[in-house]
Design a protein around this nucleic acid. Structure first.
Lengths: 200, 200
DNA sequence: CCTCTTTCCAACGCAAACGTTGGAATTGAC
DNA sequence: GTCAATTCCAACGTTTGCGTTGGAAAGAGG
């Protein structure tokens, strides 16, 4: 059979996403990644240079994917609640990214690769809020950057502390997830609504 | 010098809190805990039985501390925004608990020790919301449990993904923290306000 | 002062993970 | 069909961390 370098790399990355998301930088072993990819450990070192480098790459890839899949709108035209719901859905359907970012937040705190690119990515989100504020569709009572961040927090905290979510709201189920989503959507609208109850 | 069993245990636990909060269950080594406590590794095994057991104990202790320090009120009498601000402050002043819970959420997902006690703890919080709703001080547009959880998310997400917070809002500083706190307080009030702008 | 118990630690064996090396298999070029 | 380059892997040495053991130092009871 012919060599398939790109395929091998792909398989390693895919396996790495799963492993890192599940076990974090420290809990993951290069050996397990290689085994999951059906490849020898050495390939990982040869292609990617080590665990840390691979983690950074994996995170970058997942971020890029999210940037593609969840495009940023202007909240002058898109409803904030709908957006929050989309973010909530994305967390549910792609738990890897959120987990990777939280591992990153816990493990590395200070150093962040690709900071420039990522800052730009979030800049677009904040700009969407600013646009909405300019049109009067969104409150100016909260700063644009903070409002954006708080909306993300509504959608994200559930998966950050799933134990707590479970203990407060009861066991997860399809119904409970739907209820959570509805709460997130409603809450986002409450946060963003312009003062005089002008519910867009 | 006389034996000081309790003191030794205390030192181990304190060191363990710091180590586990900083590096998580996988990143922490028993050796480092022992060294930080100025004690031999064997003491940890003898007194606490191993890493996992110690982690569980540490988390339990910190939770108990939080339960003492941040008592639960009724939102019929206490303002929701003030409470959210208190939670935000607690996160800032005692980052350990939040970090430990997030490590737990990422590392163990399913199994949670002391589930009964913790469920009760959160039950009081939800009850505080329900009480507020009964008095008309808090919206009934969101379910009590979800509203409680969402308020916690406003206060907690900042520390869950500090990189993201930094990239969205700019570098952390005293001023930025004050601004964040204000946003959290305002946002909590927005979420909880009863429909007709009756701002308590 | 002698003995018995408790607290403590240095040192150990063992297992796991890291990162590397030497060489085998496959491919393309000539 | 031979040769050089590339892709791949089995096996290795090393480090690190887990959990344990044997025995020394400190106290308690007679």
């Amino acid at each position: 059979m012919a060599w398939d370098t790109e395929g091998t790399k792909r398989k390693i990355i895919d396996a790495a996403v799963a492993e890192f998301a599940a076990h974090g930088p420290d809990g993951t072993t290069v050996e397990r990644i290689a085994k999951a990819a059906g490849v020898n450990k050495e390939r990982v070192y040869n292609y990617f240079g080590g665990k840390r480098d691979l983690f950074a790459l994996v995170l970058r890839e997942e971020l890029a994917k999210a940037a593609r899949d969840a495009p940023v709108e202007s909240f002058a035209t898109e409803d904030v609640g709908d957006y929050a719901g989309r973010v909530y859905d994305y967390h549910r359907e792609h738990p890897e990214l959120s987990r990777l970012m939280r591992w990153e937040g816990l493990s590395f705190d200070t150093e962040v690769p690709d900071e420039a690119a990522r800052r730009e990515y979030y800049g677009y989100k904040t700009a969407a809020v600013t646009a909405g504020q300019a049109e009067g569709a969104i409150t100016t009572g909260l700063d644009a950057d903070h409002l954006m961040f708080l909306i993300l927090s509504l959608a994200g905290w559930w998966s950050a502390v799933p134990q707590v979510a479970r203990m407060i709201t009861g066991a997860e189920s399809e119904a409970e997830h739907a209820r959570r989503r509805a709460s997130v959507v409603a809450a986002a609208r409450l946060l963003a609504a312009p003062p005089q109850g002008k519910t867009r």
